[in-house]
């Protein structure tokens, strides 16, 4: 049997990118503990629409923890209080009757607020365009196992590749640094033979784009690792640093 919660929500409302925003309070009654956090926000929006009020704009897509869209700062925690959990996987049973929940958008110069809780994360897309890919020749598909990959390397590359690009690392970092994201993306290619031919230019270009977007620098506080819903380790940042050092010292440019 599910319990029911009465909640107070303090939500950041901002009409447009340049507009001044403010927190608004909303009361919600009889919220089932079986609901997900986003379903709770759906209930709020239904009520707002019925009252002819503007619904709260928030991002979401898959609602199963794989797309990285549901980015909310919940009570000062990226994706809420649970470890390795996205907002859409967070359940209302995590909260208590009478709680006040503060909901804010990601805060970073490189992630400007578009509306209410939605931020523009296209900075990540531009970092990926700068080098987050491997070039593959067209023609017949190569034999699947033609290139041998060390099992440990494959495992680590897979771990890095679980990054869903949600930006929680940036949101949680006191410097709004994107190092964990870039580290995961550089690592997933650097660890595999398919990524090696382009590794020098890749790390240089992705880091240059990261800096150009206005993210802060890493001070190794490890807040990103704790906040990451995909459990990306800061050991990837050490690899990024290694790759950068290697590219700097041995690269042609």
């Amino acid at each position: 049997m599910s319990d029911k919660l009465n909640l107070t929500l303090k939500i950041w409302r901002q009409a447009s990118p340049g507009a001044a925003g403010e927190f608004k309070s909303y009361k919600l009654y009889d919220i089932s503990t079986d609901m997900s956090f986003l379903e709770m926000l759906d209930v709020l929006n239904e009520e707002l629409i019925q009252k002819n009020d503007e619904p709260v704009a928030f991002d979401h897509d898959c609602r199963e923890g794989i797309c990285g869209m549901c980015n909310l700062m919940i009570d000062g925690q990226a994706h809420g209080p649970d470890l390795e959990t996205t907002t859409c996987q967070l359940h209302m049973r995590r909260f208590r009757n009478g709680d006040t929940i503060v909901i804010e958008p990601w805060r970073a110069r490189a992630f400007p607020v578009l509306k209410d809780l939605i931020v523009d994360r296209s900075a990540f897309d531009r970092i990926m365009q700068a080098g987050g890919f491997v070039s593959v020749n067209t023609g017949n598909a190569p034999d699947g196992n033609a290139i041998l990959v060390d099992k440990d390397d494959a495992d680590q590359a897979m771990d890095a590749a679980t990054c869903i690009g949600c930006g929680a690392c940036v949101a949680a970092c006191k410097n709004a640094s994107a190092m964990l994201f870039v580290a995961a993306k550089v690592s997933q290619y650097a660890l595999l033979p398919q990524g090696r031919p382009e590794r020098t230019a890749r790390v240089q270009n992705m880091v240059a784009q990261m800096d150009q977007e206005g993210f802060g620098g890493c001070t190794n506080t490890n807040e990103c690792e704790a906040a990451c819903p995909a459990g990306i380790s800061v050991s990837n940042i050490a690899r990024l640093n290694r790759e950068y050092l290697r590219a700097t010292l041995t690269g042609a440019k």
Partner: peptide, 15 residues
């Protein structure tokens, strides 16, 4: 690094 977050959080906790 401070400039990278011009608007701060009303509430911030660590995990």
């Amino acid at each position: 690094n401070s400039a990278a977050r011009p608007v701060g959080y009303a509430m911030k906790q660590t995990k």
